[in-house]
Amino acid sequence: MLSKLGRIDSRVLYLILLIAFIVPLLCPLGLPMIISDEIKRTYDLIESLPEGSRVVVSFDLSPGGYDELAPACAAVFNHMAMKGLRLIGMSFWDAGPSLLDRSLAGSLYVDKEYGDDYVNLGFLAGGENAMAAAARDIRGAFPSDFHDNPTANMPIFEGVQSLKDVEMVIVVATGNPGVPEWIRQVGDPMGVPIATIVIAGLVADYAPYIQSKQLIGMIPGLRGAAGYESLIDMLGRGTAGLDAQSVAHLMILIFVLVGNIVYFAERSREKEESAKEGAA
């Protein structure tokens, strides 16, 4: 039995995992929510900003991570729109501007005034250098927005020359250039508070920046979205996906456990056999 389990076809494992994903999506279990300190800190920072404050949202992500981050973006954008904050969107990844357009279209910003309450500046090539250029002179770096409108006379930029003049930066990140580069070029030298909406895979990497307070808050992927949705009392896709996440996690841990049981059982059997052969 155990040796059969050891030789199990990978596709059987995949099928079990697929079922573990689909069943809770179709029949939700209604498990409780987790709201970590980092999520709460981001919420508190946005909550503390006065109406009309300008927040830069840097969409530094690939479509690969968008599914994981979209629910959290929707929740944070809705919170910002409800607070009357103005959103200046930009991106240093080529897919960022199109994805930002989709996120904005799915949020409460869709009812706000473009160019006054929010703007999507588009993409700038060059990674960290482009960030530094935008930080120094935002309209110089983005003379036109993603929709090719000139930025020179947009009301949202009144009184904004560099990123020193904005109240907060939110980096939506799936990798580099992303959070460390923003901290290096804007957060530390300009003293602008930075928070991030980040894929879960980077949570462990950014822990030192949280402890050193170079990063004020962090919303990790889908679970961060679920927590944020409950904080603003607008349940969405983050919450809906939480049960499927739970069961899939459990299934992977069961795979690890069964894999180890099989391994140790076979190892002890091999030891016994070699001991018998030795005795013979």
Binding site: L31, P32, M33, I34, A200, A204, P220, R223, L242, D243, Q245, S246, V247, H249, L250, I252, L253, V256
Partner: peptide
């Protein structure tokens, strides 16, 4: 890894 995985989802608390 086991604790980080379980801590990331509600089922861990259950």
């Amino acid at each position: 890894s086991a604790f980080v995985m379980l801590g990331a989802v509600p089922i861990g608390e259950v």
